[in-house]
Amino acid sequence: MKDYNDYMDGISAGHELHEKIMERAGRGAKPDAPRRKRPFLRYAGAVACAVLVIFCVWLFPNLPGEPGKNDPEACLLCGGNACVCSPGAPDEPVQSTPPLGPGENGDRPLEWWEIPLFLNSFEELARAKEKNYFETYYPVYSSKYYGLYLENLNFYYIPVYAVSHYNLYGVTLSSGGIASSFSKSTAPWLEDVPWKDRFTLTSYHAEPEYMVRRIKSGELKPWISGTIYYQEFNSFSGSRTLFYWVQDGDTFSLNISTELLNEIKKNDPGALEGPLFELQRVDLE
């Protein structure tokens, strides 16, 4: 490598390079502006991608179609955010399986959790009522007990229109948008129901199988009784009008629509004072 070393020995920086070095050292900065941009430009693509990703992450939950965010009838149970129990959620799968008759599943009466009833609209609910569906398919219930199953992805959504006897079973008895939407126009058959019976029971929120296990194990009582009082209640999701009753130390609540409450106050203002009525036990055995 002697030739290589000889060649290298013949190379020197020269006065010009020396002056450039000292000039830059004296200024403490690089002389050519385009090069100064190099470190930024090298990472400019990565920075742009990161900004884009952050923007997309921010944008996605704010898209107009996001469930719950723009739902005017957001669920009362979860504070109005997206949830599977909200019938107003736009992504909710809709099943329109027609109700089965008693004979289609054998001779024995169906248990309440076996009833494959899927109602997708208040019109269907009204038609079911006209056909006396609930009275037919709830043999263990009082004949004045009206219920509705809606199946979501993982939950049964059961707003219950109670008349005089309440059979909670600890199951999901929920109100939400459906209960609030009951009105003369959507359910004209309700005209025959006394005003104080127009309650939607609001209680647990869980998968029915889980609740059935609790019922069968005795953890939850199969029926309740108690006294219902009227009370204005400010829930976490906003001002709600609720009725309460207590059973074995547990507080349950009934939800009533503002529309109905106003109707009650207008027609019979004294009706909300004192105990409204007693819940009657219904023995299933």
């Binding site: 390079l17 450039k20 070095i21 050292a25 690089k30």
Partner: peptide, 8 residues
């Protein structure tokens, strides 16, 4: 070389 001395 200029950059090296600048860093120095």
């Amino acid at each position: 070389v200029q950059d090296v001395f600048l860093k120095l």
